[in-house]
Every structure is written in C-alpha cells, then in structure tokens.
C-alpha cells in the first residue's frame, strides 16, 4: 500500500473518530452520544489496524463495543423516562467549562508539540498475538496479574453491591 493511500485511510479513520467523538460530547440526546461512541471506537480500531495491531483492534471492538458500550446503553435505558424518545442532557456553567477546556487543550497541544516522540518506520505486518501472549506471561506478568486481581475485586464488589440485603 502506497503512502498516499495510507494517509488517506488514516485521515478517513481519524475523521470518523473525531466527528463521532464530537457528536458524543455535543449531542443533546444521550442515546445519540452513546451510539456515536460506537463509531468512535470503530475509528480507533481502524487506526490500530492501520498500524498492523490487529489483535489490539479486535480487543478494542470486543471490549469497548461488545462490553462497555452495551453496559452504557443499559445504564441509559435503566434511567427513568426511557419510554419517551426525548432523553436529553443539559449543558450548564458554560463559562468556567470553556475556560477549563481551553486550558486543557493548550496543555495537550503543548505536550504534543514539545515531546520528542520516538518515531519508527512501519515495518511489514507480522503476527502479533504470540508476542503479546509471551510478553504478558513474562516481562509484564506482574502488571497483568495486578490488573486481573483488581478486576476480580471490582467484580466481587459489584456483586456485593447489587445483592439484595435481606440477610441482615
């Protein structure tokens, strides 16, 4: 694939991500925000694929779209007045919010342009799954295990909170 096409595809996925991300933030109807998030996740997954990180892209789709997005939808639907289509979010305190957001934008732009990013030429697509597996079980075993313990604790905590308190 030539560089021009790669650039075009990159811009396409980037646009999908940015536009749908903007919809997530700006949409007045909550459900539109949630569904726009679907396209944001997809755009990010597309960028991963473009970088030959296929496993990461599939994980992105599986975890975020198949799991988190559905849970978000659940949350939205369990709110009251779900039977009406008009389910809106309000925006308030625009002045301070604009100030904070502008400051954050400036900070991020400063970081982006001042950091010496280690840029590497993209090599040919190589299988990633085995390397990821090996690293998770060797070099990054501690982080992997800590995360799993954390998730397990969260799971137990969630189950405990969701339980009906009839035994007391």
């Amino acid at each position: 694939m030539s560089d021009e096409i790669r650039l075009g595809v990159f811009l396409g996925f980037g646009m999908i991500t940015l536009v749908s991300g903007a919809v997530v933030a700006l949409a007045r109807t909550i459900i539109y925000s949630v569904f726009a998030l679907l396209f944001t996740f997809f755009g990010v997954a597309g960028l991963y694929v473009l970088l030959h990180a296929d496993f990461l892209a599939a994980t992105q789709v599986m975890i975020y779209v198949g799991g988190i997005l559905v849970l978000l939808l659940f949350g939205v639907m369990l709110t009251h007045k779900i039977a009406t289509v008009q389910l809106r979010s309000a925006s308030m305190q625009r002045g301070p919010a604009a100030l904070i957001c502008g400051g954050l934008l400036a900070l991020l732009l400063y970081v982006i342009f001042k950091t010496p990013w280690p840029v590497k030429e993209l090599g040919p697509a190589t299988p990633t799954v085995q390397r990821i597996g090996r690293y998770l079980m060797t070099d990054y075993l501690l982080a992997f295990e800590v995360i799993s313990v954390l998730l397990f604790a969260v799971l137990v905590g969630a189950a405990l909170m969701a339980r009906r308190e009839t035994n007391r």
């Binding site: 296929d54 496993f55 599939a58 789709v61 779209v65 559905v70 939808l73 289509v85 990633t128």
Partner: peptide, 25 residues
C-alpha cells in the same frame, strides 16, 4: 486473519448494538 476466531467473536458482539438500537429507536 491471524486473529481469526478472536475477530469473529469481536465483530459478532456488534450485532447486539444493532438490536438494542432497533429496539430503542
């Protein structure tokens, strides 16, 4: 695909979004 079965599991979880979307809309 190198990630064949994982890809299938991932994109098939997309179907539920369509179902919820249709159900809600």
């Amino acid at each position: 695909l190198d990630i064949g079965i994982f890809f299938i599991l991932a994109v098939s979880s997309l179907g539920v979004i369509g179902i919820i979307m249709g159900g809600w809309a």
